[in-house]
């Protein structure tokens, strides 16, 4: 288990959500959600299916507008009304389905939509150098060539490219949506190492996962969503595995979590 690194938790979070509400029609999906994501740390966002994890990251990414509450970036309130806004702030989301074009190579994918140019021409030299530099910085050693087509990569290598793509853009917050969900043992290992290095290179990482082993392997903090409410957002050192599972399934565990009355009300 890695020891928490980075700045102490009383510092300003890079990304903070305060009392965020979100409804789809009559159904309220998020109820006053608070969340803090610190730079240099991995925050694991856990929760059962339907707890609101996807809605929460889509709200941060600007895909869903929030109905109430506020989003703070480096302590400043910001409005995120589209994916371009969040990208401009330095928030990058690596989606579960990766969003890579199979017929393009690693470099081309990493710069997709943001190609560097010299006049009319694509600046392949500088793009390839920058891509290689980023991959080297993240200690990615499993790619044979940065000019390999993405279709020839394994699942773990694709995940690596998708994450490296997010890092290329001087992003401050990297949100990873279940990056290890479809991977084998060795590849999960690689991706978890990469997630750790992301935090160690100063990024604020929000890591969505179902896997308790992953949580305790890389996370510094754990945030548990229960039926659209944030049951807990605490350092990993304050909880053990069974407590996290209780937070996911019941919304509270001992003294941690949603107040008993509220939890009971939610369950009805």
């Amino acid at each position: 288990m890695s020891a928490p690194t980075g700045r102490p938790e009383d510092g300003t979070p890079t990304l903070e959500l305060r009392g965020v509400d979100k409804s789809f029609g009559a159904i309220q999906v998020l109820h006053g959600v608070n969340l803090k994501v610190f730079s240099g740390q991995v925050t694991a966002l856990v929760g059962d299916n339907g707890a609101g994890k996807s809605t929460l990251i889509k709200a941060i990414a600007g895909i869903h507008a929030i109905d109430g509450g506020e989003i703070l970036f480096d302590g400043r309130p910001v409005t995120v009304s589209g994916p371009r806004d969040s990208a401009a702030l330095g928030i990058e989301v690596v989606y579960q389905d990766l969003a890579l074009a199979d017929n393009l190579d690693v470099v081309q994918n990493m710069f997709l939509g943001r190609e560097r140019k010299r006049g009319l021409l694509l600046d392949e030299v500088s793009m390839e150098q920058a891509a290689r530099e980023t991959l080297t910085k993240l200690s990615v050693r499993t790619l044979k060539s940065v000019r390999q087509l993405v279709s020839s990569l394994s699942g773990g290598q694709r995940q690596t490219v998708a994450i490296a793509k997010a890092v290329l853009w001087e992003s401050k917050v990297v949100i990873l949506d279940e990056p290890t969900a479809a991977l084998g043992v060795a590849q999960t290992r690689q991706v978890l190492d990469l997630v750790r290095r992301l935090a160690d290179t100063g990024h604020a990482v929000l890591f969505i996962t179902h896997n308790m082993v992953d949580v305790f392997e890389v996370a510094d903090r754990v945030a548990a969503l229960y039926l659209g409410r944030m049951a807990a957002d605490i350092p990993i050192s304050q909880v053990n595995r069974s407590q996290v599972i209780e937070l996911i399934t019941a919304g509270r565990s001992g003294e941690i979590g949603i107040a008993p009355a509220e939890a009971a009300a939610v369950e009805v």
Binding site: P83, R84, A87, Y95, D97, L98, A99, L100, A101, D102, N103, L104, Q108, N109, L112, G113, R114, E115, K117, L120, L121, L122
Partner: peptide, 24 residues
């Protein structure tokens, strides 16, 4: 082969959703 437009044509043909999310 050498312009941003050409690259985007390949990207849309390979994975239109990825191209859309990349801002194309």
């Amino acid at each position: 082969g050498r312009t941003g437009f050409g690259r985007h044509v390949y990207a849309v043909g390979g994975n239109a959703e990825a191209a859309r999310r990349a801002g194309i």
